[in-house]
Amino acid sequence: MELPRLEPLYQKYRAQGFEVLAVESQRDRDRATKFIAKNNLSYPCLENGDGDAEFVYNTFGVTSHPTSFLIDGEGNILFVHVGFSEGDEDKLALEIERILAL
């Protein structure tokens, strides 16, 4: 699962200006809150909008999960990551460091 593996990245880079925003797409509030509590996620976890306010698909066209967009300070989506497997944290870390110019 992707979210718990993002926590160490968040802790490592947040002082350099890195933020994580998790968005739960299916509005399964009960299971989502249990998962977030169980894994001690400290970054903001949001919920997709309902009806006309839905934005995961309507605004970002996201249909596969997990999907992550890495965005620079100008709002440019520079990296897209779909799925999550062993070692993907390292790939993400490289991209984060590139944006942070570390």
Binding site: L6, F18, V23, E24, S25, F35, L92, L100
Partner: peptide
């Protein structure tokens, strides 16, 4: 204002 943001879409 953040230098980098990861927007992570997921579901349980």
């Amino acid at each position: 204002g953040k230098k980098a943001t990861l927007l992570a879409f997921w579901f349980p």
